[in-house]
Design a protein around this nucleic acid. Structure first.
Lengths: 215, 215
DNA sequence: ATGACCATACCGGGTTTCCGGTATTTTACG
DNA sequence: CGTAAAATACCGGAAACCCGGTATGGTCAT
């Protein structure tokens, strides 16, 4: 952000009360300008040609007619630079996931405060992804779900530690710094891991480690 | 939250300057009480028996000695009710993922403001997962890019072929020979794959390809 | 106390990767 | 038919890897 640029905002929200709140919120910020506010996807699509291009689109996910999620690709196609923030009542797993897949840039609960919504708009402009904490929780559980069995390996404790870093793409120098040991030592461990796993390069060691559950 | 309960906070941070900032921040809030502030995992572990149990643990991820991530399971075992918020300088994909897997409840950039950190603590107490917007961005890309069953790869047919060889540990020259194309071409494809998958070395591309079911 | 193993550390040199370019031909699609 | 995307190809420099060595201090069990 930094300078004095005025950011153009679109609002797509069918509930008249909440729509008005959003409008007020946006208009009270000096650096924002509400250039289009509609109550359905269909009306929003009409604005593609007649309204100023948005920098940020605030869109309700629970809209009559076409779902707010389905509309995202259209926005993205027409305005590739625009950020889309979804607003929702429910922190529903599937919806969150669908919206993220569709390319939403942020995901807020409607019960968020005005300040939080303003902050969210500023965050997306800065390239971040504002997410309500409750929704972030869902995302985290989705991410962490499913890391099964570890297996017995012929590697020593230290080698196993090194292996984990190798799999994460760390270079020898990075591992050296991380573990506070000489890069030469890391190199030695790496060679020993290669020998024990019968491989001869990074790619193979990573593939083997993951496939055999060594990490 | 609601009532008058005082929440007990632990701080684990090795940088003395930032540590002091955190301490001040926590102590200035009436509903928080700083009950343990240390500069290493080892010291934190010692506090398990001697210090009051925490409701929230603020922990630097880049600590000397044992990694902040490795420590999470210990906290969770000893204090199942405590929420762990990780603090980091880098919004690094792999770290975020590792920390989430390990059970972190929140993930903040150190450049966050004092207000944001306080709000984060309140958020975890309410059961949310506070995440810096920049980190949420990473999580979203991991989610949207990271579901084997629901996702088509962004790679072209040829890139996908090359990727399979990379995962098998082939060098560029070997792939070049196998496909009867110039090694320069293989190099170009490889670079494009890296760009599309947001990685910068062989190890990472192999790990990502296997974990996301791209091969 | 004496191997066996582990973790540490160092060296040199050839090989390969990684990156940022540029550029041409082929293919697919509206 | 035109054009966007994909596939092909090339260059050079910096960085990282891979290997075959050697070597030393610590731990642990026989």
């Amino acid at each position: 952000m930094g300078e004095n640029k005025i950011y153009k905002i679109w609002v797509v929200e069918d509930d008249p009360v909440f729509k008005t709140s959003l409008e007020d919120l946006v208009e009270l910020e000096e650096q924002f300008e509400l250039v289009n506010s509609v109550s359905s996807i269909e009306s929003a699509l009409k604005g593609f040609t007649s309204k100023p291009s948005p920098d940020v689109i605030l869109e309700d996910i629970e809209l009559p007619g076409m779902s707010g999620i389905e509309a995202i690709p259209f926005y993205k196609k027409q305005f590739p630079e625009a950020a889309v923030i979804m607003l929702t009542i429910f922190d529903d797993d599937d919806r969150v996931f669908e919206a993220i897949k569709a390319g939403a840039d942020g995901y807020l609960l409607k019960r968020s405060s005005g300040d939080e919504i303003i902050k969210a708009i500023k965050d997306v402009i800065k390239g971040g992804a504002p997410i309500s904490p409750a929704i972030a929780k869902k995302m985290m559980s989705m991410l962490s779900g499913g890391n099964p069995s570890l297996k017995e390996s012929p590697l020593t404790k230290r080698e196993h530690t090194i292996l984990k870093f190798l799999v994460e793409g760390y270079t020898i120098d990075m591992i050296s710094a991380e573990l506070h040991i000489s890069p030469f030592t890391v190199d030695t461990h790496t060679k020993n891991i290669y020998r024990k796993l019968h491989v001869h390069n990074r790619s193979s060691v990573v593939a083997k480690a993951i496939r055999e559950g060594l990490v």
